[in-house]
């Protein structure tokens, strides 16, 4: 099924933005100086939109997720703005964040085994999530849990309600995790590699489930993944991150059709596809830079085939199409001086 890509945040009325991240920076103090894990990241998610946050290990995508959820370690220094449904989350107190988490902002993680308590039945865990955020009777909470289990496709929820997590298959456990995320009808779901641990046919079922929930409930979804195949399959817009910064963001069709940042291009070219090409797969030389200390220029420059003198300065985010922004001197007037 094809979904019409939703235009970028600027084209949407700001009232329907579920999430608006502006100039988010996260730094940790370390023995080697401040480590800039996330640097000046901006993106927005409209309701009923799936935005993919893509990048390799250490690109900062999970730190962004933790910032939105208010789950950064205490020693992290956060700057910028995260507006959730119009409310500022940077600097919000812990009690407010606790209230939002699991209620209006839900999260789905990679490993369903570790996010479920092995000693409680799956039904009780979902009912507990209901009661943590609303004063309702046990019976009501149980009914809501049963409803949401049915909605995510657990067959015969009444008989599975008292099952401990280990009686369920990996795919069924991930459905339970999604049910727990959905039970309070969140405005936003942060899904961090939700299908990475699952088999291909099960992954497709879970992705279809996420899309159906998005369509039926209008939930905004931030999908964090390293898998460009998953991104192409379900996302409306994509944010590519490299070394803590946004390299490129675009509607999904534009990103795959006209990748404009050299990192995005290299990432797409390094994906295995049909048949061996004579030169083999494109590889990105070098490694991700150390994020400690000052990093003034383009963070990808050292590994970039197109680098020039101007890359010593940080490239501005230039617009190359509707909702398509690229942080590269190549599109901002050339890499030379």
């Amino acid at each position: 099924m094809m979904t019409e890509p939703i235009p970028g945040p600027d084209a949407t009325a700001s009232g329907s933005l579920a999430l608006d991240v502006r100039g988010l920076s996260v730094a940790y103090a370390s023995a080697r100086g401040a480590v800039s894990a996330v640097d000046d990241v901006s993106f927005a998610v409209a309701s009923a939109e799936v935005v993919g946050l893509v990048g390799e290990s250490g690109c900062g995508k999970s730190t962004v997720a933790a910032s939105i959820l208010g789950l950064l370690p205490h020693r992290a220094q956060m700057r910028g703005s995260i507006r959730f449904d119009g409310e500022e989350l940077v600097g919000a107190d812990a009690e407010r964040m606790r209230h939002l988490r699991g209620n209006r902002i839900a999260t789905i993680v990679q490993d369903p085994t570790s996010s479920l308590d092995p000693t409680f039945s799956i039904g009780e865990q979902i009912a507990e999530t209901v009661r943590a955020h609303a004063t309702v009777s046990r019976a009501t909470a149980k009914q809501r849990a049963l409803d949401v289990l049915a909605e995510v496709g657990i067959p015969d929820p009444r008989s599975r309600y008292d099952d401990p997590p280990h009686r369920l298959s990996g795919g069924m456990r991930q459905r339970v995790v999604i049910a727990a995320a959905l039970v309070n009808d969140p405005t936003l779901i942060i899904a961090d590699e939700p299908t990475t641990a699952l088999d291909v046919t099960i992954q497709a079922q879970i992705l279809a489930l996420l899309l159906r929930l998005r369509d039926e409930r209008g939930t905004a979804i931030v999908l964090i993944t390293h898998d460009l195949g998953v991104v192409a399959t379900v996302c409306d817009r994509v944010v590519t991150m490299y070394a803590g910064q946004v390299a490129e963001q675009a509607p999904v069709l534009a990103l795959f059709a006209h990748p404009s940042h050299p990192y995005t291009t290299a990432l797409l070219d390094s994906m295995p596809s049909a048949g061996q090409r004579p030169g083999g797969l494109q590889v990105i030389a070098g490694t991700v830079p150390d994020l400690a200390g000052a990093l003034p220029g383009c963070r990808f420059a050292a590994r970039c085939a197109h680098r020039g003198p101007r890359c010593e300065a940080r490239p501005p985010l230039a617009t190359v199409g509707e909702g398509h922004d690229v942080a590269c001197w190549l599109v901002a007037g050339g890499v030379g001086l």
Partner: peptide, 25 residues
């Protein structure tokens, strides 16, 4: 056939197939 159809492909014009394999392994 079902396995290949379910595999995510880096091509946004090929979204999820309408008929997915149901059930568990």
């Amino acid at each position: 056939q079902a396995l290949l159809a379910a595999a995510p492909h880096p091509d946004p014009t090929r979204r999820l197939p309408p008929k997915l394999l149901t059930g568990e392994i």
